[in-house]
Amino acid sequence: MGHRSRVCYFTIDCDNLDLGTQFWSDALGAQEEELFEPSRQVYRQLRLPDSEIRVLLQRTDDVKRSKERMHIDLESDDVEAEVARLEALGATRWDHQQLRGYDFWVMRDPWGNEFCVLQATFPELLALRPEWR
């Protein structure tokens, strides 16, 4: 008998679930989905506007010690404007990469988790998203 599997979550660690929910909701244009109350002490679930993959925020007091092995990449038709928008939400610039014909920023969220802001990679999908104001 066969089975199915799929990516359901991209999990991000943070030490403050309320602030994590606010930052990542604003950064991604995501909406929080309700979880079973005991789970809300450790997790928050965000629904992305254009994907069935959820972002799961996980509360932890563990200190970040090294580079992540997985991270989120955001694409933008204006990298500098997107980086500035994310900085206003609490992210910081960490590493400006300009290698192999690419120009992008490695950013850190307020908890030190890395994510990248790339030039448009899938312009036909990016065109479906509303513009940030």
Rank of each mutant, 00 (worst) to 15 (best):
P110W: 09
G2W: 13
H3Q: 09
S51Y: 01
S25W: 05
S25H: 08
F122R: 03
V7D: 07
A91G: 03
R100S: 13
G90Y: 05
E75G: 04
A91D: 00
S66K: 12
R65K: 12
D73C: 13
D109M: 05
V55P: 14
L86C: 00
V7A: 10
F36S: 11
F36R: 14
R69I: 11
V106E: 03
E82N: 06
Q98T: 11
L57W: 12
P110E: 01
P49A: 00
L74Q: 01
Q45R: 08
R129D: 07
E114F: 07
P49V: 00
R44L: 07
A88W: 09
T92Q: 15
E37A: 14
L74H: 07
D13C: 15
D26K: 04
W111L: 02
L118S: 03
A120K: 02
H96T: 01
S76F: 08
V55E: 01
R100E: 14
G90S: 04
E124A: 05
C14T: 00
D50I: 05
W24S: 02
T60W: 03
T11Q: 11
G2S: 15
F122N: 06
R93N: 06
E124C: 02
F36C: 09
N16D: 00
L118M: 03
A27G: 08
F10E: 00
L89A: 03
D61G: 15
E80R: 07
G2M: 14
R47Q: 05
Q58G: 04
R6T: 00
Q41S: 11
V42S: 15
P110N: 03
R59M: 03
R69A: 08
E131G: 10
E75Q: 13
A27H: 01
L48R: 07
F23H: 10
Q58F: 06
D103F: 12
R4I: 01
L56Y: 12
R40M: 06
L74M: 06
